[in-house]
Amino acid sequence: MSVLLEARDVVVRYGNREAVKGVSLQLHRGERLGLIGESGSGKSSLARALLGLEPLAAGSVRFDGQPMHGAPPTLRRRFQPVFQDVGAALDPRMSIRSSLEEPFVIHRQPVAGLDALLAQVQLPPELLARFPSELSVGQRQRVNLARALALNPEALLLDEPVSALDVSVQAHVLNLLNALAASRALSFFVITHDLHVIAHLCTRVLVMFEGRLVEEGPVTQVLSAPRHAYTQQLIASR
């Protein structure tokens, strides 16, 4: 498998505080990689650094060999984020059609295939005329996904993709993500505190603690035989 995303010795600093203390990682093409760790461990800072949204105090992030920081839109659109806060990610004043057209407009692409885009996330085309407030939380999260998929990215960064959803809706979205990964050969970088989500979505997992990666390995191995004390505690508590 070739390397799609590579971080080398990434350091993110806020004033005197180092949130990410030298992290190196690789996401391969078609791979589904998970990142677990508790709040304050630096997960979100690392995620923003990987997307090129957080200035680096040291190190580098490359996507398909090119630096993510200061990258042109043509590179950025190949690696799309889907964030946790389902409510805040869609503009309440915009119809679903406008929300889905926006990525095409921003990247100066002809708007095409909105019906097919909704079909991919198992939503009917009638929803295009609706507004976010008229959709259930699960439907809104699927629209977010459809938006992220609009420009055919090669990788998705999924930050707590199901933690705001009800249990019965979580199952739908996890199934959908697995189906999409298989049918479109997408790579996932999944950030979550939920080990079950990692078990169902990912093949390899990284464990972050106090700004550093402390453990890495195949999901089955890390979840069944964790080596680091923090991972052991996390797994014992689930």
Partner: peptide
């Protein structure tokens, strides 16, 4: 049944059709 914790990875999770 639909809870990820109750299911072995690698298979589609059982779901409940429709919404509350």
């Amino acid at each position: 049944a639909s809870n990820p914790a109750a299911n072995a990875p690698g298979r589609a999770l059982p779901t409940i059709d429709g919404a509350v």
